[in-house]
Design a protein around this nucleic acid. Structure first.
Lengths: 191, 191, 191, 191
DNA sequence: GATGAATGAGCGTTCATTCAT
DNA sequence: AATGAATGAACGCTCATTCAT
């Protein structure tokens, strides 16, 4: 027997992402994914149980890669502000480097299908953020408010900015990034 | 010729919104919308040219209502901070009062179909925000950074918070709202 | 709106029967039925909830017609033997006149799907037989054995004979029919 | 080269029979048969040329075993009636002992695929019946009517009765069997 | 204006069979 | 001999839309 072809699995996942970003979840069919990936529709079902599983797998893997990218060069010895800044830059760099991942994740997580993602899979993504924020609060550097609140101010505006930049094909320069980070830091840090 | 029945139009739009929020854009068909609205599929085409037009109309109307809600009690004589605060509270109140509108808008604006919305329709929504921010910058109260950046920090975290609260069925109390607003203000105001 | 087209419903049912008799239940798809009936596959679903409902409806209607044919000219005033004979002849005549009905019913009732037929629908068919047999037993003309047993001998061999005749394109002449009926009568009557 | 594994062949045939009896010819796929038999779909094609061959082989083997069972203890020295009675009892016992065989055979032989069975394979089954009937007619014990007619009355009602008993999980006791046999004998014997 | 009937195209999925190991 | 991977065609069914009343 032939071994499973890992490149096929990835072609399927990537084709799904590209089509979803281009035409939307609503107009991306299994046949189209298969055609784009250069396989038979039936082949998809060797790698994924059904369409929902395929989409959820794609989301979870994208989120996992995002999570990994953010942690790059991160170190517990860094000052809170520097660590925060590094994650912020990592995230923005990731958004620019893999806009597909990012655009897909935003579409997916705003659709009801996201509720089918297992909780542990979903929340793993936020762990590095959470950890940093708790560290910052313990050190008396970050405001003593709820985690959700800090998360919303620390990283969500960046996502919003990246969304616009990806759509317009623009990007922030160092100065813009510096200004943006300042806003974020002012929002969450004790002045 | 009977006049078009406004209540039918409303029923169709509302049914679409409810189904899309429950099952997703991808699983909401014209037949289902018709059944939910208690009309024939053919009737929908009397009120809307086709499915895309129906969805876009729904989005634009939802956004327009949001816009209107935010402006409630707003007055150019208010101090910048107070005006900002009022809009912030209006928006959060609207999210809680009409979670359907809000959930639908988030799903829609993260799907590619949003690109089919006429620019003037889409941007009208932001006008009150824009106007306020420009006033604040002129007065030297808000940071002299790009409009997009201030918008991202001033209102986007609130959307993110509301998304969680709607999903979990919770809400911020006055104290929480105060803390959240402080973060937003610190992000955008000159300290 | 257009009224439902009764001729379409019948074309669908008849096409299904013809295809099932020719190619078997296993090789008769909704598309093929639609093509044979000259309608769109989607149209079938206006008249029948799904494939199973279509097949079951077909079976029940075929059985109902058989039942009606058997009762033709039947009269409670007839002697038991004459009534029995009339039903026997009616049934054989029906088999020869509508071999499709008969062949379909045999295939259907030997497949597991027959278990999905509502009991009352299924047993209505046997009512005339049952009634006659009970009358015969009360009159002391038929053997006092179980109903199932008498039914099995009174009518099932005829079905078997008809099956062969239909397949071979032959038929019993009057003499053959007389001989066959004698066997049946000897089987069930008190000598 | 390993020798073909007879137990695998049996497992495939038996799995096919079980699935067909449970879900019907129409819903029994090669993959399901393979899964049920604990082999790969490809393995089935080592033992059988294709699906039709598999089904036909199954039918022919089932019929051959039935045929063998009926002949058990049969002896040309027996009186016609006793021989007839023995075959009748053998057949009923076989039906009760191997209801799967019997249910499968009835489904199969009422579907068009039965026409693909080679004539000699199919008719071999009836040889013992035929032989007995001819002996009985020569001896002047059985009615001098066509073979098909006698066969239809002699054994077909039993099949019908067994079908009901298998479905209901009941069985005839000795008394019931005696009564049933009497009917059959009265049908075919010269009084 | 409003309807249920009607449709060809397409949906997600499984089919019987073959391939490559 | 035996396998799981792979497939194009077909499955049952629903889609967005239009027709006829």
């Amino acid at each position: 027997m032939r071994p499973k072809d890992e490149s096929k699995r990835e072609a399927i996942l990537n084709s799904a992402m590209v089509l979803i970003n281009t035409y939307g979840l609503a107009h991306t069919s299994m046949s189209k994914i298969a055609r784009e990936a250069g396989v038979s529709p039936a082949t998809i079902y060797i790698y994924f149980e059904n369409k929902d599983h395929l989409l959820i797998t794609l989301y979870v893997e994208v989120k996992r890669e995002m999570s990994r990218a953010i942690l790059d060069s991160l170190d517990d010895d860094l000052e809170i502000r520097d660590a925060f800044r590094l994650m912020w830059e990592n995230l923005y760099a990731y958004y620019l480097a893999y806009p597909d991942h990012f655009v897909f994740a935003e579409q997916f997580c705003n659709a009801p299908i996201v509720d089918a993602v297992e909780k542990e899979d979903a929340e793993g993504f936020f762990a590095p953020f959470t950890h940093l924020i708790e560290r910052g609060q313990d050190a008396g550097v970050l405001k003593p408010v709820s985690l959700d609140l800090l998360l919303a101010f620390a990283f969500h505006p960046l996502t919003q900015l990246a969304k616009q930049h990806v759509k317009e094909g623009t990007a922030m320069d160092d100065e813009g990034l510096e200004a943006a980070f300042s806003c974020a830091w002012d929002a969450v840090a004790i002045s």
